[in-house]
Write a protein that binds this DNA or RNA. Structure first.
Length: 376
DNA sequence: TACGCGTGGGT
DNA sequence: TACCCAAGCGT
């Protein structure tokens, strides 16, 4: 190996070794040798079908593998086939997804399953174009499904491989555009054993080529790595400028009346649409949770229900994209329970139903307080 | 092209 | 504690 291995061809912007078939072969063997010894044992790699890989890939979008594992296993138990998924109610599907976030994924997956059963006799498409026509499946997911389930020759580009390729190319976030990274991935793609190849690159990116403190000393690819050669591998791992966050103050109230609690299904276009939530009020800068009379009147406006006193519960903190929400929680009794006064879609729900309904993450925590009779 | 979308793990 | 980040897609 010479010092010029990681040199970059000025015209194409790609490293000079990439044009050399022998070098590409050497690179591929290094990847495969590493994978043979270090592959992760993940449930969606055990017995692969189009359906199972599809479910796993949707769950894995923007979500770490370790987080997905228990959800994947439960989901397949509840919905073992595309037909069973298509027959399910959306509420059941969202309940199985609850806690994973990005609930649009679950609704798209459910819609797509219904489409496959209704229009395609239950046969999941086997081409990238047809897969990408289904909701929730983009270029990466289509390529992943076909390569993992059927070993079709499609390159992939996602968070792990994107970081790995940026480092290999010593590309800054501007130079390392998705267009050039996809092209790089396709040039590297071997002719056979594509599923293993794509898994290998993902595992390398996930376990060695991590965003911070990459394990270059254990990496089989340092000979070809521009970032390693530059001596500053870490700096290529993160790219995004931090977006400014906005703090929000909100109030949530558990209101009980005769064994029922007040809940509302979040509507289309709102955050957490399709999930159920306790009554929630956005507090302006001028409003304070300590001003109970004011809150009482805001609550009446929001729900149509009057409360007299309330007990404080813990304050929860959570984020939605660029908003950091401080959610103050209260518990109260309703003065009455006349359904005809309810507004904005609020409903009285049996406490036992809380187990069955899909709740937002904060609502689930509050429901736990309710069922255990206290706070952790 | 850039932003909205959720949550939990890691540091 | 308060960040950063994750097997992306849709608009």
């Amino acid at each position: 190996m010479t010092d010029s291995t990681t040199a970059v061809d000025a015209a194409s912007g790609s490293p000079s070794w990439l044009a050399d078939a022998r070098q590409r072969g050497s690179f591929r063997r290094a990847v495969r040798r590493w994978y043979a010894r270090h592959r992760r044992d993940l449930p969606w790699r055990r017995h692969r079908s189009l359906y199972r890989v599809w479910v796993s890939e949707i769950m894995l979008q923007q979500t770490q593998a370790a987080t997905v594992v228990p959800y994947y296993q439960r989901f397949l138990k509840s919905f073992p086939s595309v037909r069973r998924l298509a027959l399910a109610d959306e509420e059941q599907v969202l309940r199985a997804w609850e806690g994973l976030g990005y609930y649009r994924r679950a609704r798209n997956l459910h819609q797509a399953a219904k489409q496959v059963v209704r229009d395609l006799q239950g046969r999941i498409p086997r081409t990238r174009e047809q897969l990408q026509a289904l909701p929730g499946i983009g270029r990466y997911t289509a390529a992943a499904i076909l390569s993992f389930a059927l070993d079709q020759p499609h390159a992939i580009l996602e968070a792990n491989t994107r970081r790995l390729y940026r480092r290999l190319l010593a590309a800054s976030s501007e130079a390392g555009s998705d267009r050039s990274l996809w092209a790089f991935a396709e040039t590297l793609l071997p002719r056979v054993r594509i599923a293993d190849w794509n898994d290998a690159l993902i595992d390398l990116g996930a376990t060695l080529c991590s965003p911070r403190q990459p394990q270059c000393s254990r990496c089989p690819l340092t000979r070809w790595c521009g970032a390693f050669t530059s001596g500053d591998a870490e700096s290529f791992g993160t790219a995004k400028p931090a977006t400014e966050t906005t703090p929000l103050e909100e109030l949530a109230i558990i209101v009980e009346s005769g064994g029922k609690v007040l809940l509302r299904e979040r509507r289309e276009g709102e955050w957490w649409s399709g999930l159920w939530d306790f009554p929630r009020i956005r507090l302006s800068d001028a409003e304070s949770a300590a001003d109970f009379d004011r809150l009482r009147s805001r609550f009446l406006q929001e729900t149509g229900i009057e409360i007299d006193t309330a007990v404080s519960l813990p304050t929860l903190r959570h984020s939605v994209t660029r908003y950091h929400i401080r959610l103050q929680c209260l518990r109260a009794e309703a003065d009455n329970r006349t359904d005809d006064r309810l507004r904005n879609g609020y409903r009285w729900i049996d406490r036992e139903q809380l187990e069955r309904l899909p709740l937002t993450a904060t609502a689930r925590k509050m429901a736990q307080w309710l069922s255990t009779g206290g706070v952790d």
